[in-house]
Design a protein around this nucleic acid. Structure first.
Lengths: 342, 342
DNA sequence: TTCCGGGATCGAAACGTTTCGCTTCTGCTT
DNA sequence: AAGCAGAAGCGAAACGTTTCGATCCCGGAA
């Protein structure tokens, strides 16, 4: 049905090799170029990617594996990732594992069959065993957001310095007089969550503030869970004077719970949230949050993968890009002098 | 580097055709099957998709074009879409047009080069001129969420009955005694937005309630815009007794503005929002919202495309699936007797 | 015993590119 | 005038499948 390179060759009286050369950006005589272009137009020719890939062994396609597609943090990363890769001619095949680690191998297998040239991998668990099969095939992989310990000397990674981010945020609260700080911490099995918890603990320790177990709450990253846990923090005793919520969903949960408890932010309780800068700014009071450079993370991951896919630098040692979050000040943290000091 | 079908043939002493038959699910003698499987294992063979596609003319890949990847409504649809398609062996190439209509042709061209077997298209504008090129190539296309008038007899579509949803929500408010209902309406250029506005007006008309121009606000779909417009609605006169926000971002904007105005929901002002059921439930008060069957929309669109990609039914007449939204009652609409009746 | 039908298998051709190793041509240097 | 370098163009082979039409083999029917 579609015209082929051979048709173009016949129509123009040129050879196959010349057409191919032109199609791949090579130089041909001006009159020939014109003839080729005319023929392409007339026959409505389009390169057959299958045949091309069969020869070149490149699909110009990369796979992206994520635990959840309907999650703003993740899709924000993918947005810039996709943009960067597409600009270089790469298509992005996304696969959602629905937060099930067992599906990872399924999906990786699938992507391998689709002949992807590389992979961006956002792990669900801490081990990512299923990656082995992919690596045996020499397919470049870039890990993003969540570190896999056993690959730290093998694979490129783009990570956030979660420890530092949490340390800084906690310090920010301490500096403003808080000594009873609750943390909504997701789930201990997830890399980012445990790093954030670690940063929180380190800050407290550095300032000689005792860690109160009942202020550390694992909420499964959900709004609902955080809502409940926040209520619960205040159910006995006076509760914390500040809360650190370590992702966006949890930030909302805390906010709603505080509202229900009749505690005003920041007069009664201070709050530092996470992510979704735009929304945080729109709120009243504007939220003080930890903002991750999502856009940049996507761009960096894409760049790493692109370079790794060039046969020239397969030997480059693996690189870990550690990004810094930044605290964006809103009005959800009380400024000293603090009213509700204890 | 990788083993080919030929290697398997040699190792097993069988012919190429037999191996191919086995790989494609055909029946071969039990002992041969065992031999083939053993050889595949030993050589770590994997079918070369390029060669296969070159012969079959199928990439087993579909393209998804959306205006914005970091938007929960859209990614929720894609989640189920991807899941359904992957289950049938199709990969999903996503392309984000960044809400720029001009990029649509770029992206469509790109996807064509990637040899997609079909397309899911969520239009930015009302015309989608760039689709013509794709349709000339006989690539099946399913439109989703936003109707394109000129293709209504040509293409399969999965739409929400936005008119009805808005009509019902407005009626819901009217029945509870509201006669001054503000609407946050996005932008008149977008299909879904104008349908929702149309439904709102129809309900008012049916009940003989005059339309108040100053209660109709176009906010560009943003939280910020809706925040401003909501404030503005109350800046002169008494303002509305209820607000209908026609997407999730706008719902948040209204909520924040009302809070700032010191108007309680639902005691002072009632609110019907849109989308994000999970969050709406978590809020206090729980929001009454219009909930779109996003999951189902994705599934249906996938099913339509799958059937359209089977050569057998290219002749089936185009189908429009019109889905109904449902009103999920929360506590953000005052129940009669209404306190703030005028 | 001979025929016949049907299942299993087979090799060859074809899918539409890219690329290798040559040939031809052009215009300049000596 | 002869020689030469470099640009431009050329055909054939190869990439790894699928599929067509043919062959082979086996058991049952006649």
């Amino acid at each position: 049905m579609g015209a082929t390179i051979k048709d173009i060759a016949e129509k123009t009286g040129l050879g196959l090799a010349t057409i191919s050369k032109y199609l791949n950006g090579g130089h041909v005589l001006e009159k020939n170029q014109a003839a080729i272009e005319a023929a392409i137009d007339e026959l409505d020719f389009q390169v057959n990617g299958f045949a091309r890939s069969l020869k070149t062994h490149h699909s110009m396609t990369v796979g992206v594996v994520i635990p959840q597609l309907d999650n703003l943090f993740m899709t924000s990363i993918i947005t810039s990732l996709e943009e960067t890769l597409r600009a270089k001619g790469y298509g992005v095949l996304v696969c959602d594992t629905s937060r099930m680690e067992s599906r990872e191998s399924e999906v990786l297998n699938f992507l391998q069959q689709k002949m992807v040239d590389g992979l961006i991998f956002l792990a669900t668990g801490r081990e990512a065993e299923s990656l082995n099969a992919v690596l045996n095939r020499r397919i470049p992989v870039v890990l993003i957001d969540r570190k896999i310990e056993r690959f730290s000397d093998t694979l490129d990674m783009v990570l956030l310095d979660n420890y530092q981010a949490a340390f800084d945020s906690t310090m920010y609260l301490i500096r403003r007089g808080h000594r009873h700080i609750g943390i909504l911490a997701g789930s201990p099995e997830v890399y980012t969550a445990s790093e954030r918890l670690r940063g929180y603990c380190a800050a407290l320790k550095e300032e000689g503030i005792p860690i109160e177990e009942e202020l550390i709450r694992f909420t499964g990253f959900t709004t609902e869970g955080s809502y409940r846990e926040t209520l619960s923090m205040f159910s006995r005793g006076e509760g914390p004077t500040a809360i650190f919520a370590t992702n966006f969903e949890m930030t909302l949960g805390a906010l709603l719970a505080l509202k229900d408890l009749g505690r005003n932010v920041p007069e009664d309780v201070s709050l530092i949230g996470f992510d979704n800068l735009q929304l945080a700014r729109a709120m009243q009071p504007a939220l003080t949050i930890v903002s991750q450079p999502v856009r940049e993370m996507g761009v960096r991951a894409a760049a790493l993968l692109l370079s790794r896919m060039q046969p020239s630098d397969t030997k480059r040692p693996p690189e870990t890009v550690m990004m810094r979050a930044r605290i964006v000040e809103g009005a959800s943290v009380s400024q000293p002098p603090l009213r509700a000091m204890r």
